[in-house]
Design a protein around this nucleic acid. Structure first.
Length: 509
RNA sequence: GGCCGAUUCGUCUAGCGGUUAGGACAUCGCCCUUUCACGGCGGUAACACGGGUUCGAUUCCCGUAUCGGUCACCA
């Protein structure tokens, strides 16, 4: 009963991983680590029509970026390889055949047109549900209604067929979801799902159950969209004879649109101007690029912190968590049941928190690169100082350079409102006096020293420092607001400081 | 529409029969500051509705409403 915990993240490589998928992976990972278990990655590529080149690599890279380590599966490999479902075809076929042999599944030859006609007819007849089930299957073309010779003849002739589950007419299917508790569904609500498609590949339902069993998965943690088919899966475990080792289910609440109705979609991201994918993704067919959290400047630690708290809460008032802290406090039973609206503002706040905690040296390269891309000379040392000065003011690392505009660019214009309000005789005098004092100054050009020099100069000139500070800022940056002025002067250097003071004096008169 | 699930401030949530219904984001105000931010402090703001059960319901039960998911040879 107490088997070692093994969970899996099983995405389909049909495009970039949705941020909701990342959260599912994260919850699986947190649970695995918390329980001292293993995290597997399985690629569910049974739909050949939807296969997108590059998607699998994208998934690997995204998980790596976010800090989710795969213990076993596609990538690191393991004892249950292969971990790509398209390479496990025979395994599913064997199990499907077993179900046929045991009378729990049957062959069906219905064409798409015939199925459509059946559904349409049922709908028009006001049937409660237009499905292929215990009642309707007797009117369809399958091995239950056809003579064995005919079935064999069609198969020998190479006619396409599928294998369908022979769902019982009346049976109560119960399942105990770790998050939702008992969920009961009557088997009449489950239809005769296709298990094996006519191309010989399994559908999700079969492949999933077979693999989870073979890979000894103990907990299936997945999105709520799977809840309706969970009873079917229970039925499959039963029919396959694996019910005693059936994994426990935990269905996660979905991520909803920031506003309006429905689940979070790509369109919301475009409309709201925020990413919905962990990494940037360029569609191989259309060439259209979609933004990513990483490229938009979100730190992985901020992203997981944000995601972890979207639908789960440890019950304490802690907001900031490292991955290890998340692992330590994670508990599946504390996952919220209702869907969570996606609010990018909170993600930005988390990023702000982590940016200000970053060492200056970690932020410096970003600043330096941007500066150089804009044609400015910027040593790493200078970039580090700028990072220190501005990191507390921004949400993203790339905003530091933007905020540092007045450091790199000498003012070409001066804020009119500030000029009118503050550029008076005292201000002119103060700037001139300070310039003179600075010219005489030959110590280390550091913020503290500059502050003293300014203070002394103002005192000697009989000017109240507080009255002229904004004018001083205006002279140096052209603006009335900005980061600490002394540090700003230290960073731009003595020569540039003097030049700017001089220029203000001549320009503003 | 059938089935399944959900419902606490605008948003993410705590709460698991008795609370001034707590925290965070956002918002507003104050303080700090040479300014703008940051930060600190504080304010506004919620138990969907109706019945039960109970001495007492946000909490338990039943309806209603609303929202979400799902009804493919897609996952």
């Amino acid at each position: 009963m107490s088997r070692p915990v093994r969970v899996r993240f099983a995405p389909s490589p049909t495009g970039p991983l949705h941020i909701g998928g990342v959260r599912t992976a994260l919850y699986n990972y947190l649970f695995a680590r918390k329980m001292g278990g293993k995290m597997l990655l399985r690629i569910e590529d049974t739909d050949q029509n939807r296969f997108v080149p590059g998607a699998e690599e994208y998934i690997q890279e995204a998980l790596k970026w976010i800090g989710i380590e795969i213990d076993e599966g596609q990538g690191p490999g393991g004892p249950h390889a292969p971990y790509r479902q398209s390479e496990r075809k025979e395994i599913y076929q064997k199990e499907a055949q077993r179900l046929i042999d045991e009378g729990k599944a049957y062959y069906a030859f219905d064409t798409a047109e015939e199925l459509d006609a059946m559904r349409k007819r049922l709908e028009e007849a006001n049937a409660p549900a237009a499905q292929y089930n215990a009642i309707t299957r007797m009117q369809m073309r399958n091995s239950l209604t056809m003579k064995p010779e005919e079935v064999k003849a069609r198969m020998d002739a190479g006619d396409p067929f599928v294998i369908r589950l022979k769902t019982p007419r009346k049976e109560e299917v119960r399942l105990n979801d770790l998050i939702r508790g008992w969920v009961n569904v009557h088997s009449s609500a489950i239809d005769d799902k296709v298990l094996l498609k006519s191309d010989g590949l399994p559908t999700y339902h079969l492949a999933n159950i077979v693999d989870d069993h073979l890979m000894e998965i103990t907990h299936v943690i997945r999105g709520e969209e799977w809840l309706p088919s969970a009873p079917l899966h229970v039925l499959l475990y039963r029919y396959l004879g694996w019910e005693d080792t059936m994994p426990q289910f935990a269905h996660l609440p979905l991520l909803l649109k920031p506003e309006g109705n429905g689940k979070l979609s790509k369109r919301d991201a475009d409309l709201g101007g925020f990413p919905i994918f962990p990494l940037q993704w360029t569609d191989p067919v259309t060439g259209v690029t979609a933004r990513g959290f990483r490229e938009d400047g979100y730190l992985p630690e901020a992203t997981i912190n944000f995601l972890a708290l979207l639908g789960w809460n440890p019950g304490t008032e802690q907001e900031l968590f490292t991955m290890d802290e998340l692992i330590a406090s994670f508990d599946l039973t504390q996952v919220h049941k209702a869907g969570a609206r996606f609010d990018i503002q909170k993600a930005q706040w988390f990023n702000h928190q982590y940016i200000r905690l970053q060492p200056d040296a970690a932020l410096a390269p970003t600043v330096q690169q941007q500066a150089e891309a804009d044609g400015f000379n910027c040593s790493l040392e200078k970039a580090e100082k700028i990072a220190a000065l501005l990191k507390g003011r921004v949400n993203f690392a790339h905003e530091i350079f933007t905020e540092a505009g007045t450091i790199f660019n000498a003012p070409t214009t001066y804020d009119e409102a500030i000029v009118t309000a503050k550029w008076n005789d005292d201000a002119k005098k103060a700037v001139a006096v300070f310039r003179d004092a600075l010219q005489m100054f030959n110590g280390a050009f550091m913020a503290d020293e500059i502050k003293h020099t300014l203070g002394d100069a103002m005192q000697q000139a009989g000017i109240k420092q507080g009255k002229i500070m904004q004018a001083m800022r205006l002279a140096l940056t052209g603006s009335g607001a900005g980061p600490d002025l002394m540090l700003t002067m230290e960073i731009i250097g003595k020569e540039e400081t003097l030049a700017r003071l001089e220029k203000a004096l001549t320009t503003l008169g």
